[in-house]
Write a protein that binds this DNA or RNA. Sequence first.
DNA 1: GACGCCGTTCCGATTACTCGAACAGACGCC
DNA 2: GGCGTCTGTTCGAGTAATCGGAACGGCGTC
Lengths: 268, 268
Amino acid sequence: MVGTADGEAGTSHSQSLERGLLILSAFRSGQPQLGVSELGRCVGLSRSTTHRYVATLATLGYLQQDEETKKYRLGPRVLDLGFSAINSMEVREVAAPHLRRLSDATGFTVNMAILDGNDIVYVERCRSTRPGQREIDLNLHIGSRLPAYCTSLGKVLLAHLSPPLRDAVLDGVDFARRGPNTITSRRGLLAELERVREQGFALNNEELAYGLRSIAAPIFDFHGDAVAAVNLAVHSSMISMQDLVARLGGTLRRAAAEVSAHLGHQPA
Amino acid sequence: MVGTADGEAGTSHSQSLERGLLILSAFRSGQPQLGVSELGRCVGLSRSTTHRYVATLATLGYLQQDEETKKYRLGPRVLDLGFSAINSMEVREVAAPHLRRLSDATGFTVNMAILDGNDIVYVERCRSTRPGQREIDLNLHIGSRLPAYCTSLGKVLLAHLSPPLRDAVLDGVDFARRGPNTITSRRGLLAELERVREQGFALNNEELAYGLRSIAAPIFDFHGDAVAAVNLAVHSSMISMQDLVARLGGTLRRAAAEVSAHLGHQPA
DNA sequence: GACGCCGTTCCGATTACTCGAACAGACGCC
DNA sequence: GGCGTCTGTTCGAGTAATCGGAACGGCGTC
């Protein structure tokens, strides 16, 4: 037998833990209520095995069983986990008041995101406070994911990755057209990232969706790594690309720089 | 052999899964960076065993290893879990726009919470938009927990529990004094809950902390269960208790009733 | 009432797990 | 420089925790 060559991690890997977490993750997609059999099919396990994991998760509070339908849904302990993840983010804590001020000052929606593989993950969000403002809402909330290549937040984060890491990430990108101006080639994106890196901010002119514009700036920690990015999202009817840069660019970059400074970043 | 009587769940229980999740939970308390040895001591396992779980969690993205310190922190996949938990809450989705409107209309901070055991868990939060407003912030964010017995949100949720369930919950309450007017006896709380139930809303007059007042109303689903509660939080210098009820009570209760109606609740 | 599906329980076979021991590296201390 | 002790990590042999098939009871439906 070869033995060692198969699987993913070979040596140290806990099958049970992986399967249990796989079951938990199954609740991400769509339906919030799942039964044992459904889950079993989802993760490719027998009903009995699935049930054991589900029962374990339920007694620990990670799942709750609906008394009527006998199906399971995520429990409050999962919330705990998620929130300790969020709250363990120094960046977010430090940035929150600055983002609020930025949103108040500009009247636009402010988002903060981190990079996770090909995706960006929203970790903070301040909706525009002006009631009359046209609502831009692709059903985004904290925790939402979007592909990095077609968002200002994603581009600014990719632009400040080390070249080998950036290339590794780009290998996995599916350059699907999502808006009128989506960058649909690796070559094009690389050129764009170069530009973003030089000018210190990223623009998005309807690359993700029709009518959506944004400008994003990076947040650096004390190592000089871009650990997060912050953007202003506007509707194309509200502002031209020129004005986006001229009127909002400075304020945005100043806010991002303040957050970076609080994280110990020393501007070169 | 007795066999079945020992342990917690007896029969179907996955040890590995429980241990793995225990390791994840260890990150809740304080330090966001933990090493293998620390974790091992935390959960009572050998370093090698702990390492296997940690490695598994890391390859799955639930943990990330800091390249310098070699210690681990929570990874982005944990965020996913937490957010699918939040987003699987129908209540929250339905309520969000109403809460925003309520906050805009009153100018005060609006909170929504659910009950989890003795605690309430914040699931939505709209900070007051008026800049001049005095900030009431006990470092609360979505996911924060507070004891139910000394909050308006908690009292209104407890008040609408079925008596046996309510009694079971109260058994675990530690009636610690947290503010000038904290209810510190089970007897007193039961009387208060009765009042809350009758009048349809709960008040908090500095029971949680000095200077903090709030008024809360329940949100019912189509079963008639109080699945969440919403409140308005104010500083005692801003408004008297009479005005809190007279000026804000109606608006708050109307907002809560609208959300309940959207969930299919039929007022009796 | 027979079928199909569900969640749940039980059991023996087996496989994936446990822990001690050992390694390599980092740090502090004489 | 050479201890001593702390890391994180790897390996292996013994064992205990896990696996999935089979069976039970409860629901709907045809």
